[in-house]
Design a protein around this nucleic acid. Structure first.
Lengths: 337, 337
DNA sequence: CCCTGGCACTCTGTGTTCCCGAGTGCCAAG
DNA sequence: CTTGGCACTCGGGAACACAGAGTGCCAGGG
C-alpha cells in the first residue's frame, strides 16, 4: 500500500512542514524536491497517505500537514539521527567539564540541552535507587537531635534532621557512624533496607533505641526520595514557537514533577531514544508537543533520564542527535567524577 | 494640584482597570463608585491626571489606563496592604510546616507563593554570607581525594570534592575534622576566612599541605557561592494573563539568575516591601511587569529575599499582603528548624 | 469658582461583502 | 501508471460601513 515513492513524499512533507510551518501543497513539493514526478501524481500519493491517516488537510483547499501517525512513521523509518558537528561536541564537553558538583552538572546539562535544541529541556537527577552509598555522616546538633547526611557515589547528598528518643553521647555517635559506614559502604541503595535490617544485632543494647530511630529514618528517606527531583530550562523557547495554543497547559505540566517523570518514561535499553509524539503522550495538556528522551548513566547502568519537549513539528533527526549526545557526555562526566 | 477627589478618581481608575482589564471611562466610573459628582466633572479630573502623567488613553476615544507613575502613586499613597484571611494564614502555616529540609522549604514556599498570588513566584535561597557554620565534614573518597561537606544553621549543605597534594591517613582526617569543627562551629560565614587564616599554626607540620589545600577550597567555595541560587514557579500564570506581548522576554529573564537577583533587589529594612513597577525595572524585557519583593530571615537578620512578578496591572494590595505574609512565615519556619 | 448637562467629534472594533489565489479531486488521454 | 487540464472549494485579506463608547469644550446655574 505504501510504496517507496509515497514514503518519499511523506518524508518531503514532514521536512518541508517542519522548516516552513505551513501546510505544504503538491506543487511546492514537486518544485523543491526532485521526486521525478508531476504534481498530479504527488496528489494521488497524498490522497493515499491521507487515507492511511499519515497526513491531513486543515481545510478543503489547503496543503497537507503530517499527523502524529505521519511523524511516527517518519521517525521510525524515514529518518536517521543526525550526529552533532565536531564543534558542537567539543563545546558540550568543555561546558559540562567545568561543573564542580552534582547540582552544577545537572544545571549545566539542562541549560545546554535547551540551548542546543531550542526546546524545553528536562533533566532528572541521578536516581537514588541505582546509586551506591559512599558515606553516611551523623552530625550532632543538640542533645537529642542529629543531622543525617547520606553521600552517594554520584556526589548526591541527602540530608535529614532526626529527633532522637533519648540523649546520645558523642562517642556513641562516632561508634554508630563507624558501624553504619562499615555496613553500608559501597552498598547499592536498593539493598540498603535489607542490610540495615540485619544490623541492630551488632550494636550494644543501650544504643539500640537510638539506632532504631536513625535506621528507620534512613529507610524512610530512601523510600520517600524515590520520587525524584527534576529540573527544566528553556521555557522561553516555547513562546518562540508560534505556539499560542495550550501554552498555559504546557507550562503547568512542566511544573508538575509527576507529569515530567511520566513523560521521560522508561526504557530498558540505555542507548535507546524514546520519542513520544503528540497524542501518544500520557498527559492531556501535552497534545501538540513531542518528547524526545534518553537515559543516561555512568558505565552501563541507567541512572536517570533526560530529554526535551517541543512542538510536534520539531526537527526530529537533529533533536534526537542532540539528546543522545548530551546523554552520553553527562554519563561520561558522572563516571569520571 | 491633585486634590482629594482627583486622587479618589485615580484610585477608582486603578481598581477598575485591575479588575476589568479594560480602559475605564468617565461614565463607568461615576456609575460604579459613588464619587458624588457627574461624569463631566470626572472628565475634568481625568484631564488633570493625564496632564500629570498618571493616566493615559490608548486612543483618542478610549477610556483611561493608569501609567506606571499612576500605579506608583496608588501603591505609595492610595492603597494599604491587604492582610490575608485567617483561613489563608492557617493554610500557609500547615503547608510550610510539613517541609523536612531546606530544599523542600524553598520549594514549598515558591509554589505556595505562586498559587496564592496567581503570579510567578521567585525565592532566593538563604544567603551563605549571613548563615553560621554548624558542622564541617571531611569524607575520604580515595587516597588523595576527600569530599568536603559544609552544613549551615539554616540546614543548607554545601559540598565539594577536593584533590589533595598527598596521601592522607584516616586518623589525620579525623584530627583535621576535629580541629576545623572546633574552630568554625557557630562562626558566621563572613568571619570564616579570618578564622581559617589563623588556623595552620595549630596543626602538626605533616598535615599542613593537606590542610592548606582544604582551607583554600573552603574559602573559595564560600566566595564563589556568593552568587546565590534562585528558584521560581508559577510560570503558567503568565500565560493566563492576556499577556501576549513579551512573554518570551519574561521567560528568558526568569531563567537568568543574575537578572532575578537584581529584580529582588535589596533593602535594609527587613519588614519593608519593595515594589518595582513596569519601567522602574532594571531589566528591559520586563517593562510591562511589576515585582513585589520582601526580605525574609530568621530573627532580625535578613537571610534572603522572595517575591512575585506579574503584569503591571496586578492587584497590589492583595499581592503585597501575600508576599509579606509568606516572607514572615518562612522566617519563622527557618528560625524554628 | 466649580459643577453640570448638552453637543459635536473622533476613534476603535466588528460585521459584511467581495475577490484572489492556492490547492484540490477528478477525468480523459498518452 | 502518469500526466495535463479543468472546475470547484475555501480561507484570508482588503474595502467599507456603522454603531458605540468616550472625549473635549462650552455655556448656564448654584
Amino acid at each position: 500500500m505504501l510504496d517507496d515513492r509515497k514514503l518519499a513524499v511523506l518524508r518531503a512533507i514532514v521536512e518541508d512542514y517542519v522548516s516552513t510551518n505551513e501546510p505544504v501543497g503538491s506543487k511546492a513539493l514537486a518544485d523543491r524536491h526532485n521526486l521525478g514526478v508531476s504534481p498530479a501524481t504527488i496528489r494521488n500519493d497524498m490522497a493515499a497517505l491521507e487515507d492511511g491517516g499519515y497526513i491531513h488537510q486543515p481545510h478543503t483547499s489547503a496543503g497537507r500537514v503530517p499527523t502524529d501517525k505521519g511523524y511516527r512513521l517518519f521517525v521510525d523509518r524515514l529518518s536517521q539521527v543526525k550526529p552533532l558537528s565536531g564543534a558542537e561536541r567539543r563545546a558540550i564537553e568543555t561546558f559540562l567539564a567545568g561543573a564542580v558538583d552534582l547540582d552544577e552538572i545537572v544545571m549545566r546539562t539542562v541549560r545546554l540541552l535547551a540551548q542546543l535544541t531550542r526546546h524545553v529541556a528536562v533533566v532528572q537527577y541521578p536516581s537514588l535507587t541505582r546509586s551506591t552509598v559512599r558515606h553516611v555522616e551523623i552530625v550532632p546538633l543538640a542533645d537529642t537531635r542529629v543531622m543525617l547526611v547520606l553521600i552517594t557515589n554520584t556526589g548526591r547528598v541527602e540530608q535529614r534532621v532526626v529527633d532522637l528518643p533519648q540523649v546520645i553521647a558523642d562517642d556513641r555517635v562516632s561508634h554508630l557512624r563507624a558501624v553504619l559506614n562499615t555496613a553500608l559502604d559501597g552498598c547499592g541503595l536498593a539493598q540498603v533496607p535489607e542490610t540495615l535490617a540485619a544490623l541492630p544485632e551488632r550494636l550494644s543494647p543501650e544504643d539500640r533505641p537510638v539506632a532504631a530511630t536513625i535506621l528507620s529514618v534512613i529507610m524512610e528517606t530512601l523510600v520517600e526520595r524515590h520520587e525524584e527531583k527534576i529540573v527544566f530550562a528553556g521555557a522561553a523557547n516555547l513562546a518562540a514557537a508560534d505556539f499560542t495554543i495550550g501554552l498555559r497547559d504546557v507550562l503547568e505540566a512542566l511544573e508538575e514533577q509527576v507529569v515530567l517523570m511520566r513523560l521521560l518514561g522508561e526504557t530498558d535499553d540505555l542507548s535507546e531514544l524514546t520519542v513520544r509524539i503528540g497524542s501518544e503522550n500520557p498527559y492531556t495538556g501535552l497534545r501538540g508537543t513531542s518528547i524526545v528522551a534518553a537515559g543516561y548513566g555512568s558505565g552501563d547502568k541507567e541512572l536517570a533520564r533526560l530529554g526535551v519537549l517541543g512542538p510536534t513539528r520539531m526537527d526530529y533527526p537533529v533533536t534526537m542527535g542532540a539528546v543522545r549526545a548530551v546523554a552520553r557526555y553527562v554519563g561520561q562526566i558522572l563516571a569520571g567524577s
